[in-house]
Design a protein around this nucleic acid. Structure first.
Lengths: 189, 189
DNA sequence: GTCTATAATTCGATAGAC
DNA sequence: GTCTATCGAATTATAGAC
């Protein structure tokens, strides 16, 4: 374990915090370096550019549960609990979300993350390809909407909820998106 | 109707478009002025500062329907149709949402808009004050999540949905947040 | 009312000493 | 590896000519 590795790790931690708190433009390399207590030029030396620094700092795995190993009627419940727990105080997610609101390359990264991790999960339980993509997209509207209102906009009533209450409210919604009838054929899940 | 009024209106239109497309930092006064085909100094003359320009450009009414005039079991449906229709191609909303992701004063504005327009709507159909605030907050997670994924992140499956399909999917979710049982007392709506 | 010129900052990135 | 110094570019905002 070299000294440089520890320095790089410290930079990444500070970068996540600054990007998550301030977004891309306001999170300056100078501010990130100051928080990591190193020289700003070291950031450039190790990561090449600000954009590459963000790419390194905002890379992560959702580590979604395998729904095929679970009873279908508890999919929403399991997924809600998992995501709420996994996202609580997660600078990496908030950093990516905040930056993606203004930087195209970060939004593209978010789309890639969605296509690579959320869509495949749903594809394994929904045979129709187009329907699977739709269900995954709807899941994203609710989950990213939660992250946005709770961690970025910080709407008071959303912040006030406990993770247990959140999971309880979200569970039937995710279940609806995963198993609900597709509009056109009318019925209820 | 003075020339100056037309100029101000043109600036506001251009500002909404630039803020909605680029966020706060990248939407420069120069770029906004160029799009409105006027001199950058005129923007300062009329609005004083960039922050005041955003405040003027991102002010709007949600014009939510009065749910007390509607049968309770169609609340979700009416609200879903209304919001989906009202938000389609709405630069003002997207501008505020995008800027709120990085600028504290815009996030505060979003919280004010929520507290002033969404919360009161729910308060009229939910007697318990705390529960009403929670329901309103949950509504916001889904509706702002839709705006985020469809208009800002542009997740392909979410963009691909028609407004009718969207309303059909969202309707039971909004109904759940408006009328569903509060976690703790278990039952279904 | 409109525009030019520029002040005052700030930032990402680079060059090079040690 | 680490730091100083600085370049070049871009920004908001202002002062003032016409």
């Amino acid at each position: 374990m070299k000294r440089s590795d520890r320095t790089k790790a410290a930079i990444l931690v500070a970068a996540r915090e600054r990007f998550a708190a301030d977004g891309y433009a306001k999170a300056t390399i100078r501010a990130i370096a100051a928080q990591a207590d190193i020289d700003p030029s070291m950031v450039m030396r190790y990561f090449g550019s600000k954009e590459k620094l963000l790419a390194a700092a905002a890379s992560f795995e959702l580590e979604l549960p395998d729904l095929t190993a679970i009873r279908p009627d508890s999919w929403g419940d399991v997924l809600a609990r998992h995501l709420v727990a996994r996202w609580e105080r997660n600078d990496t997610l908030v950093a990516l979300l905040r930056v993606a609101a203004t930087q195209d390359f970060a939004a593209e990264r978010m789309r890639t993350l969605f296509a690579g991790q959320v869509a495949p999960l749903v594809a394994r339980i929904e045979p129709d390809e187009k329907t699977a993509a739709t269900r995954a997209g709807l899941l994203a509207t609710q989950m990213l909407g939660l992250a946005l209102t709770r961690y970025v906009l910080e709407l008071p009533p959303v912040v006030a909820l406990t993770t247990d209450e959140l999971a309880a409210w979200l569970s039937p919604v995710l279940q609806h998106y995963l198993t609900g009838m597709v509009p056109g054929s009318d019925s209820k899940e």
